[in-house]
Structure formats: C-alpha cells, structure tokens
Design a protein around this nucleic acid. Structure first.
Length: 161
DNA sequence: GTCATGATTGTTAAC
DNA sequence: GTTAACAATCATGAC
C-alpha cells in the first residue's frame, strides 16, 4: 500500500507549480493568473493522466540509473540525468516509448470518456437522488467495479517492440 | 508518523 | 495561442 502516493501526487503539485513553473515558463510571462487553481476541483475518482513518452522512458531509466549509481539517492538526480539522456536520444530511440505512451493515452481517453459519462449521469442522477438520498443512504457508487479497463493492462505491458 | 521537497519533459486542459 | 497543472519516483529532512 502506498498512501503516500496519493498525497504525494497532490502535494507535489504545490511545489511543482511553485518551482518548476517559476523556472520553466514563468520566464516568459509573469502572469499569476490562477487558471485552474480555483476552477479545478480535485476528483479522487478522476483517472490519472497517462505518462508521456518521457515518463515511460524515465521509468526504465530509473532502474538503469539505480543500478549504475546505487549510491545516488533522491529522484532529482535521476530526473536530471533522464532529462539529459532524453534530449540526446534520437527519434528512433524514443519511438518505442512514444508508442507506449500513445497506447496509454488511448486508454486514458477511453477511461476519461467513461468517467465523463459517469459524471454526467451522476449529475443528472444527483438531481433526483438528492431528494431521495435525503431519506436514503446513498450507496456508494463508486462501485467500483466498473472500472473496466483494468484487464487491458495485462496484455499491454510489454509489448513488443 | 506524516508530509513536503528535489528534478525532469511531455501532454492536457483551461483560459 | 498561451500557460499552469499534472503525471512517477523515493530518500530525506522538517515538524
């Protein structure tokens, strides 16, 4: 179990936004306009974004990096090294990672569609349910089970390449 | 014991 | 079109 991930994912945002942004793009513009900050509400049920090609590569790179530099601790060093290597890689070298990322993206779109549908129907339902739920215990819908796409991950994984 | 931080790039979504 | 947010990772320090 890794409860930390949940929080890490959330908390990292703040620091990421603070520093990364500051370093990366803020340079171009100084617009503190909090766009989604206020509008974006966090949905624990919302599917996570798929890893980009770089992240797919990073996963593998981390393993290699750790083997080569077992004494190096911290993800910062790995991230930096991975970033440099990524830049030095040729398109053909990145291809397999991009393919994997594309696959994940497709899945993500699928899940998102289902999620959006669910949200829509839920909102609709919520309207009616809100009345009923007053007297009834709203059953968790999360149900869970519907998440379907899980099975795919089985065959996806190591694909070919 | 729990949480934030650190570093990277790509992609997405909101404006 | 622009830009902020977020995706993974994990040892470590701070509280």
């Amino acid at each position: 179990m890794k409860p930390v991930k949940g929080k890490a994912a959330v908390n990292k945002v703040s620091k990421d936004a603070l520093k990364t942004v500051n370093d990366r793009k803020v340079g171009k513009s100084s617009k503190p306009t909090s766009k989604k900050v206020g509008a974006a509400k966090k949905d624990p049920n919302k599917p996570k974004r798929p890893p980009s090609a770089f992240f797919v590569f990073l996963e593998e790179f981390r393993k290699t990096f750790k083997e080569k530099h077992p004494h190096v601790k911290g993800v910062a060093a790995v991230g930096k090294a991975g970033g440099e290597k990524w830049k030095s890689m040729s398109k053909s070298e990145k291809a397999p990672y991009e393919a994997k990322a594309a696959k994940k993206k497709t899945e993500y779109e699928k899940v998102m569609t289902a999620y959006n549908k669910k949200q829509a129907s839920r909102t609709d339902d919520a309207d009616e349910e809100s009345e009923k739920s007053k007297s009834e215990v709203h059953d968790d819908d999360e149900e869970s089970g519907e998440e379907d796409d899980e099975d795919e991950e089985d065959d996806e994984d190591e694909d070919d390449d």
